[in-house]
Amino acid sequence: MVKQENSERLGPIEPSPSSSSTERTVLNVNDLRTYFFTREGVVKAVDGVSFLLRKDETIGLVGESGCGKTVTCLSILGLISRPGRIVGGNVLLDGKDLLKKSEREMAHIRGRRITMILQDPMTSLNPVFTIGNQVAEAIGIHQRVRGRRLWEKTVEILGLVRIPSPEMRLGDYPHQMSGGMRQRVVGAAALSCRPEVLIADEPTTSLDVTIQAQYLNLLKEVQNQLHVAMIFVTHDFGIVAKMCDRVAVMYAGKIVESARMRELFHNPLHPYTAALLKSLPKLEGRQEWLTTIEGQPPSLLNLPPGCSFAPRCRQVDDHCLEEYPPSVIVSETHTVSCWRAV
């Protein structure tokens, strides 16, 4: 409840390009560019990424490793360090540009209004502190509560992520818990201040299938309860189908296609999306050979001038090799960057 008052305290909302939409836009990422200036050259890890996130909505960022999914999320949180730098674009949270905030102001936003769940709970939890300690830390810093009240809040949030008998488990150290339970603790710390945006960066990659299913269901329930908007980073289309309302497919630092989830599955317009969907082995029926995408993802150091997917694309022509395709709005909910759609 503390949270909602906070967002109002921030003053009038600046006009944003999407404020006309019916559902409230929480986060608006606009032409974000994060480059890494390495000795070998400039690595354009995120190169003009734009998307909108509305209240109660989950957007999936899908792509292979190194395509810029995680760097996009870290840029939103202002966690890019040298040799990386955000060189352009803006990130509007409730209309306020996060990239213009000072480090001090960001420290108040991170962990309170935007939070993140990382991939591996063993590295995101500190092994020498109890889990109660670590969840309480986030609450204590951002909500300024202490003593008995802090303890109650910690128990409440651990109960919310279904840790059995949270009063008892508070004193446990991370190594005393299983992987699934640890990831729930990370979720508890992330949700403890009722954030507006939750970024989940492959939260279930290190979990087993049955535990993954439990965790995904839990995240959905908690989302419905707290009305948090989610950015879900994953490479697994199964998770996308289960969790996301909209999907943005990334390739070599750019969003190549974004659409409503079902639209993307039924009518993928970018050759990369279509090929990825076809290359998945299916549980039903039997196929002899899988459709493959030949070649390897490109190095971000020396990207070809044209479409970055062109060297692996089956429908490539001369135009693709010369110029990067513009973003084409196919329908209100579907955009794609491909010369074939122009």
């Binding site: 299983s178 087993d208 299938v209 439990q214 269901n217 199964g238 289960k242 989830m261 969907l277």
Partner: peptide, 25 residues
């Protein structure tokens, strides 16, 4: 049965048999 229903089909229209195994190994 539980393992199969926990496996996520890459198809949003697949009938999802929601038999989620509770507890842990």
């Amino acid at each position: 049965v539980g393992l199969l229903s926990a496996a996520l089909p890459a198809n949003p229209d697949a009938p999802s048999a929601e038999i989620i195994l509770s507890g842990e190994v």
